[in-house]
Design a protein around this nucleic acid. Structure first.
Lengths: 346, 346
DNA sequence: GAATGCGATGCAAGCGCATTCATTAAACGA
DNA sequence: TCGTTTAATGAATGCGCTTGCATCGCATTC
């Protein structure tokens, strides 16, 4: 009866050491640097650990080691696919380095975000990512003071100087407009989600305008519809744009996939054949986009990649490698079936 | 120069104590139980803490207190709305108790799930939730051994005896079938995602059959289509079911919303008017379901509620309250516009 | 005015683990 | 065969914080 099996307390390294007839130092080494321990002893220790159901307690470890192997991520909400995807990718990338993710949601509230960041620091996270949010100026001062590597994604900080992973919204919409121009479209319309307080959307519009301007074309006001966010807004937007006076657009650029889906459904309701009668593009490549009939031509700002890059950056920072402070990934065109050459018309 | 401002090391309670002219005990009390400290002293301590940018280090706290205020959650993937929603709700519910969420993804792999659970325990989580996954038998032994409260959601354990929060799939589909029967439908079809290794789907089918049987009706084999998961499968399924010999179903029950969306789109493509010509139902109430035209009649197994309940259960366990071991929430019918009385036919 | 009580505070002992340093045993070379 | 290097291990210390217990000062109370 050298071991008190009926003792409710969880096993500690001490207990394992006693059971294996070694010191706690050896137990620690057997687990963390197995090659520094004689094979026979190591096996004995691991066997004892297994028998006692011992799992090293990270708090003690963190204290002694001065790191937690926990990374924090603060996001607006988990309910949106783009963020969920990024977080999922980060989780996977961190897992390869035995780093676990602590998550906090800000609900789009800068104050909550700041609070979450503070919580993360308290938890002793080794690294921190803030997703999809323009942080309050000064938010990162405490983070910097603690020398905790951090990164923001899906949008850059207004005051600059923060490491960030994202993509260029204007360039992305330049690309998608270019795609339509190359197909021969001359008159395009655009359906937008609200631009108020959202520089990303403003940039998207600018990207479209810029590409059109290169061909001496423009976006007529009546072909530009800014509404809400969602499928119904897409439907309404399409009616608005197509019912405008003057030459009808042969292509509609939507600022996100839900709008595009709405536009697509409405076009079909109106008896138009997509893409022969009308080309439609989205943005995001949400999972449903590929499933539609016809499948939506859209752009994929690879959110998984953003997550991976952000995690990778933080990991390399943890390993002491300096890396560039701003990474932009190129969104890629997913050329499916809602775009085609415009029908010849007299 | 009583404080070394230029010392890179982060401030500790010690430093705050010195700056405020008190002991670390008082610092701790000022933060954790402010009423046990004289107001003047408390203010002095908090001011010193703020000045030094001190944030208590959770590892030390966890060690001394024997709890971490961290809860772990293991999910198959963040990329699916149902899980993301549950996690989001849990996060919010835990946040009210100053508990932060540590997440791990299993990628639907029982071994990874087990690994994640072990990681969570190592991190010293105070509570643990496993979402949407039938755990390997014995998985929870270590958890139980450590007396860590846990709960599984969105499915019950085969070996039973585990606390769980979810809903009764059979009852849910009984309800939705009942809804159609009450509208007067006599011939219904069903489109299913794969039933293999997925008891939840089997239960859904059983629920439909049970409700039909109560009216002396049945589900004809040719009106039952089991395919893949997704919109295209829904389209294909609908064609299959409607092209079968014999009386055409006037209503189609789909085992999830994506299948229903596919069926809806296909019905419209076929020139059918939904719901007049054909009623269609889904399940899950994914966010897009409400946006379609016509909006999808479906059932909402309130995943946010599941998350909240799971978190609430764990919190009450942490507070020492015994609670029922199995909670079933009633999924609710979201009666939108894809169901109606069947058209009279001769 | 002295005894009593109580609130406010400090002291010090850990919490569980990693790690430095010293020690011992083993392996090696000559 | 003996000194010397190397590998394996243990004892002891500290990471940053909480908390039981002892202490002190002050306001009650008789």
């Amino acid at each position: 009866m050298d071991v008190n099996k009926d003792l409710p307390r969880a096993a500690r390294a001490q207990d394992v050491a006693k059971a294996a007839g070694v010191s706690t130092a050896t137990v620690s080494r057997a687990v963390n640097s197995p090659d520094k321990v004689a094979p026979a002893v190591r096996d004995r220790v691991l066997a004892a650990a297994a028998a006692l159901g011992w799992l090293p307690h990270a708090a003690g470890s963190a204290l002694a080691r001065k790191r937690t192997s926990i990374a924090g991520v603060v996001i607006p909400t988990l309910g949106q696919e783009v963020f969920a995807t990024q977080v999922g990718a980060m989780q996977a990338a961190f897992a390869e380095h035995d780093i676990t993710l602590l998550i906090g949601c800000s609900n789009y509230d800068p104050d909550q975000a700041a609070q979450q960041v503070r919580t993360m620091l308290t938890r002793g996270v080794d690294a921190l990512a803030v997703l999809g949010q323009i942080p309050k100026p000064g938010l990162f001062e405490v983070v910097q003071a603690r020398r905790v590597p951090y990164v923001i994604t899906y949008g850059s900080a207004p005051d600059g100087g923060h490491p960030c992973v994202g993509f260029d919204n204007a360039a992305a919409f330049h690309t998608i407009t270019r795609h339509l121009l190359d197909l021969g479209h001359k008159v395009v319309g655009m359906i937008l989600q609200p631009t108020l307080h959202n520089e990303r959307i403003v940039a998207r519009l600018a990207g479209v305008r810029g590409a059109l301007a290169e061909e001496g074309l423009g976006l007529r006001p009546q072909h530009l519809c800014e509404g809400e966010y969602g499928i119904q807004a897409g439907r309404k937007g399409l009616r608005h744009v197509l019912n405008a006076d003057g030459p009808r657009p042969s292509a509609i650029i939507c600022s996100n996939d839900l709008l595009a889906i709405g536009a697509l459904l409405e076009a079909q309701t109106m008896g138009l054949t997509v893409p022969q009668d009308l080309s439609i593009t989205g943005f995001d490549d949400i999972s449903i986009a590929a499933e539609l009939d016809p499948a939506l031509t859209t752009m994929k700002a690879d959110n998984a990649e953003i997550g991976r890059l952000a995690a990778g950056y933080l990991v390399s920072r943890l390993q002491g490698n300096a890396t560039p402070s701003e990474v932009l990934i190129p969104p890629i065109l997913i050329n499916r079936s809602t775009t085609a050459q415009p029908r010849k018309r007299s």
